[in-house]
Nucleic acid binder design. Sequence first.
DNA 1: GGTTATGTTATTTC
DNA 2: AGAAATAACATAAC
Length: 248
Amino acid sequence: MPEGPEMVFLKEQTEQFIGQVVVEVKGRTRNIPFELVKGQELTQIRTFGKEILFCFHNNVVRVHLMFFGKYAINGEVNRPLELGLSFEDGDLNFYACDCRFLKEPLEAVYDWSADVMSESFDQEQALQKLLRQPTQLICDALLDQSILAGVGNGIKNEVLFRARLHPESQVDQIPIAILKDLIKECVTQSFRYLDSKREGTVKEHWLVYQQKECPRDHIPLRKEKVGKGQRSGYFCEKCQVLFHPVTG
DNA sequence: GGTTATGTTATTTC
DNA sequence: AGAAATAACATAAC
């Protein structure tokens, strides 16, 4: 579930609990002081990138689903409970996730201008941050949460395809216009992902990620571990241009 | 049974 | 000291 749009979707699904008081806190997480959460009223839910933030009057419960995280709303799943919040009317259960307790004001912790799903996302700032990492490969840079919070491996592959850019292109070799287009696509595709999540059509959503054939050229996609992160890359070597330094 | 996978952080090594 | 590599954690599907 981990990419940004899915967190926004989760926020929409859990807003039913806003205004309700937490009547019980359970789970094996040791990062949350249960006694400080119990009895508190959920005032707001926010997301930052791949994180969801449950806000109470004086503190925040942060959940990150990591690789394998799952959740259940008004239900349970048969596996170890990481964090369970029971409200006056219903409950919210998280599994295999990373939970944290934040006491500081959110503004001191998060910069929403880096979050592709945020109204405050700043494309120009993202471009400047990218340019500050000139020798990075674009496939690694796209997954940098301090530049494009919320972008995960699925969105990464989709935006590279749409911008016709080879994942192993080096940042400083890519024309600025293409970088700008790529950043714009990060926003567009993230919201498109959210739409397909709402409609329940995520499986049909992907053009290249986990796919076999290039939708443009109808030739097999290459599937390789790319970049320093060695994450799965799905790309077409015919229509996605490689920008790399000329050697010698 | 081995491999792979939507991610991040802590620890170790150079 | 600091960057870079490695390990660690979690779990289901093929």
